[in-house]
Design a protein around this nucleic acid. Structure first.
Lengths: 246, 246
DNA sequence: CGGTTACTTGATGCATATCAAAGAGGGTGG
DNA sequence: CCACCCTCTTTGATATGCATCAAGTAACCG
């Protein structure tokens, strides 16, 4: 297993007279930086590193000491865990505004890999923790985010444990569409930065079943497949019904 | 769908000259009350209600306004979500020391039902939140607990998405055994307060498959079944290997 | 002790996995 | 700029693990 990639890094603490990346940040409202005032953001900025990863690069490895936490500011990331024999489970996809760095006993609980060129704000865990001691707003917001993620994890358990292949794909597309809307992007078409095999490992299926199910949904007029890995939801109501398992 | 049960309640804020239930609390170290000092615990106690539920009683219903959060102090609880057609997914089991009350947009994300006579400390969410504003230790601890739960949720996703029936049962037994140890109970035998159908809905299987798999594990000498829903782990190494999917 | 519920076991079926190979892009070097 | 190659996706044929359907058996409780 290779070591975590060392990404190209742009130091950001220093001044340059240009516009402030945190003030201009398009995703701040979604992150733990959201509730902070101008001065508090400056404190955060002083410990943050802006780092970029190219497609396929690893951000963190499961089991590594969790020295950093990240906010995704652009791109997309997959989180995954491996069984000893190579079986893989993708436990989530991250998009701009999402948080990365869940740790258990000081080690990352999963590996994370960029699905496309990705930008992050990276914080040394220790320094963020000391800062949080002074700024309880940070932990309050992190707790909100953690509860949201827990609720999403529950939904994913229902999906994995009790939904059919078609229901899984429908739920997946709806969820991505919803997340696009939360980021103020159009609900349609749904952009898929991940390949069929990633989707399969996220939904507990195989590549072939994912492909066949896409074809079925296409044939039945619920979706249509566009170039560049995009999916047009032609019949949102039908997709919704399928997803909810009616 | 019936309303949430109104449990028998014992007011605890009042004094009685007896020993203090919070000071004596055996599970405090596991809960968000853990890091508080004597005086802070008194503040918590003033907003808490001790409530008990009998087997089968509902603590909270998915979709209800989440007015309370709970610490389980005795007994056992199952958390579940339903699909419209009745399919059920059990998303977790709670034991003494565990926290209940994950909410999304002010509504419970799941239903919770007692598996046996169960005691809880129940806190009005609003009042706990205002108290947390003064006692950042509470949110800090809650965040730790939420991260632990998120890590556990990731493991459950691997289990549901990629493990065989035998691996699921083995992982399940190991996990219950570990949790017994964390509560300073013997690792063996494993006590199962839930029935086969609950286990099935937790592992994404059917009752029949759970039963057959128990029989297999028994036949192959990995476990043996005891009275009162207890399982003796006869060969912990074999169980471990199975669980990890080697 | 009878009735009820939970558990186990057996026979069969099906949704999805597996194995296999044929398109479809997409990038690169000639 | 085109031809080739590599990877991803789709489609087809077959296999299988678990679900479903169906009884029997054990445990529990009034």
């Amino acid at each position: 297993m290779s070591a975590t990639a060392t990404p190209q890094v742009m130091e950001s603490g220093s001044s340059a007279g240009y516009s402030d990346p945190c003030v201009d940040c398009q995703v701040r409202q979604y992150t733990f930086c959201g509730p902070l005032d101008r001065e508090e953001v400056q404190q955060l900025k002083s410990i943050l590193t802006s780092s970029q990863y190219s497609s396929g690069e690893t951000l963190v490895l499961e089991g590594e000491a969790s020295e950093h936490v990240f906010n995704i500011t652009a791109g997309a990331v997959k989180l995954y865990k491996l069984l000893p024999d190579g079986r893989r489970s993708i436990t989530g996809f991250l998009f701009p505004g999402d948080f990365l760095g869940i740790a258990k006993a000081g080690e990352y609980a999963y590996s994370a890999e960029a699905l496309m060129p990705t930008l992050t704000c990276r914080f040394p865990r220790k320094r963020l923790e000391s800062l949080s001691a002074d700024l309880p707003k940070i932990e309050h917001r992190l707790l909100e985010l953690a509860f949201d993620e827990l609720a999403a994890a529950q939904d994913q358990m229902v999906l994995l444990g009790r939904k059919s292949a078609a229901e899984k794909i429908a739920s997946f597309l709806r969820s991505l569409s919803d997340r696009q809307q939360r980021r103020k992007l159009p609900a349609n078409p749904v952009v898929l930065p991940m390949n069929r095999s990633d989707i399969a490992d996220f939904l507990g299926l195989t590549t072939e079943t994912v492909s066949r199910t896409f074809t079925q949904l296409k044939t039945s007029g619920v979706i249509s497949l566009r170039n560049g890995g995009m999916v047009e939801i032609s019949n949102p109501d039908a997709l919704e019904e399928l997803a909810e398992g009616v």
